[in-house]
Computed example of a mutant assay.
Amino acid sequence: MDRQAKAVVCREWGQPVQVETITVEGPKRDEITIKIAACGVCHSDLSATTGKIPYPPPLVLGHEAAGVVVEVGEGVTDFKEGDHVVSSFISMCGKCRQCVRGRPVLCENARKAMFNLPDGTVRTKGADGEPLNVFGACGVMAEFATLHVDNCVKVDDTVPMQNAALVSCAVMTGVGAVFNTARLEPGSRAAVFGIGGVGLNAIQGCVTAGAEMIVAVDNNPRKLEMAKEFGATHTVNINEVEDAAKAVKKLTGGVDYAFECVGAGPVVEQAYKSLGRGGTAVVVGVADPKDKTSLTTLSLPADERTLKGSWLGSARPQHDFPRILGLYKAGKLKLDELVTRTYPIEEAAQAFDDMVAGKNARGVIVFETPVA
Score class of each variant (00 low, 15 high):
Cys206Gly: 09
Val85Ala: 00
Pro266Asp: 00
Ser44Lys: 04
Leu117His: 04
His319Tyr: 09
Ser314Asp: 12
Ala127Gly: 09
Glu260Ala: 06
Val267Asn: 03
Pro160Gln: 05
Gly358Glu: 05
Val24Arg: 01
Phe89Asp: 00
Pro27Gln: 05
Gly40Tyr: 06
Gly254Trp: 02
Leu184Lys: 07
Lys52Phe: 12
Pro344Trp: 06
Ala349Arg: 08
Gly75Gln: 12
Ala351Glu: 10
Leu298Lys: 14
Phe179Gln: 09
Ala113Trp: 01
Lys6Val: 06
Ala127Lys: 11
Thr306Arg: 13
Val171Arg: 03
Ile203Val: 12
Glu143Trp: 01
Thr369Gln: 12
Val41Leu: 08
Ser314Ile: 09
Leu335Asn: 02
Thr49Arg: 05
Thr23Gln: 13
Pro221Val: 02
Val339Met: 14
Ala142Tyr: 03
Asn360Ile: 06
Val371Met: 10
Ala164Ser: 05
Arg3Ile: 03
Thr369Arg: 13
Pro56Gly: 10
Leu184Gly: 01
Pro317Leu: 01
Lys112Ser: 12
Gly278Ser: 08
Gln350Arg: 15
Val17Gln: 03
Val8Ser: 00
Leu275Val: 03
Thr173Gln: 03
Pro317Ile: 06
Val100Tyr: 14
Gln18Gly: 06
Leu325Asn: 05
Glu304Gly: 13
Ala258Met: 05
Ala348Lys: 03
Cys261Arg: 02
Asp83Ser: 08
Arg123Ala: 08
Met92Cys: 11
Arg316Pro: 07
Thr342Arg: 07
Gln270Glu: 08
Gly136Leu: 10
Arg316Ser: 04
Trp13Leu: 08
Tyr343Asn: 10
Ile90Tyr: 00
Phe89Ile: 11
Gly94Cys: 14
Arg123Ser: 04
Arg97Gln: 13
Asp303Ile: 05
Ala349Gln: 14
Glu346Lys: 15
